[in-house]
């Protein structure tokens, strides 16, 4: 698996898109820091960008990589290698190179700005950790979609729909259900609702850490009273880890049964 990982990583590190993605975060970081001059505001703006953009790029890139390397995967499948290690290697290659673009792209401007001397270093690290989690989650989901759909167009369609659903539609439905059932106690429902969406979960996680009650919203407030800040952080981290594990397990399971 490590060999496959090494080669897909090399392949991706040479692709133009990794650099475009890196450059985007680099510029975003520079602009936010040096024109804004307020570190915590910059972190909040970054959070809003990361939470929508990272899942989108993870899904699109994952699906694209899978379909683009399909014939090469067939060549690998004819080699004496385990199926699960081929797909896990490719998955980790994509996820790690995307995470590196994110971490370096945002990290370098912040280091240039003098992050180590400021108090927001933990908020900022949390932002990067969440971004990495989201990359791993959505790349894994993308690989799942691609493994289940031989048709490229369908695969892309489902991938975009998944992103659209989790990033935008889910919130709308969630809010509507809260309004609709406002006469009932909704604490548990909203807790579960947040945990079932990795994007909402990440947002709550970062806002809990930043401790901005104005931005927390109803769910965040419930989260805070229910778990308290630190326990809440731990619970949401565990949930994010579960969100990575389940799709990865399905990659292993599905790759053993597919025809190529």
């Amino acid at each position: 698996m490590l060999k496959i990982l090494k080669y897909s990583f090399y392949d991706l590190m040479r692709s133009r898109w990794s650099y475009v993605y890196f450059a985007f975060y680099f510029l975003l970081g520079l602009v936010l820091l040096f024109l804004n001059n307020n570190l915590s505001k910059a972190v909040i703006t970054l959070m809003n960008v990361i939470i929508v953009l990272v899942p989108l790029i993870g899904t699109i890139f994952g699906v694209m990589y899978y379909y683009n390397s399909k014939e090469f995967t067939e060549l690998l499948l004819a080699q004496p290698l385990k199926r699960s290690s081929i797909f896990l290697g490719q998955y980790l290659g994509v996820a790690i190179s995307l995470s590196l673009s994110l971490i370096l792209g945002l990290g370098i401007p912040f280091i240039l700005y003098g992050l180590f001397k400021s108090g927001v270093i933990w908020d900022f690290s949390l932002l990067l950790i969440t971004g990495t989690f989201l990359t791993f989650i959505f790349t894994a989901l993308a690989f799942n979609i691609a493994l289940s759909n031989e048709n490229k167009i369908k695969g892309f369609g489902y991938a975009i729909l998944l992103w659209l659903f989790l990033a935008i539609i889910y919130d709308g439905l969630f809010l509507m259900s809260l309004i609709l059932f406002e006469d009932y106690p909704l604490d548990k429902l909203s807790l579960i609702g947040t945990m079932l969406n990795p994007i909402d979960l990440s947002r709550t996680l970062i806002l809990l850490k930043l401790d901005i009650s104005a931005l927390l919203g109803y769910t965040g407030a419930v989260f805070k009273t229910f778990f308290g800040t630190y326990f809440g952080l731990i619970v949401s981290f565990i949930m994010l880890a579960v969100w990575v594990t389940i799709p990865v397990l399905r990659i292993v399971f599905k790759s053993k049964r597919n025809d190529f």
Binding site: Y7, Y10, L75
Partner: peptide, 12 residues
């Protein structure tokens, strides 16, 4: 094994 369609990673 020699596969029917040869398509390799473009960046290698």
């Amino acid at each position: 094994y020699l596969p029917q369609i040869a398509n390799f990673p473009n960046n290698l």
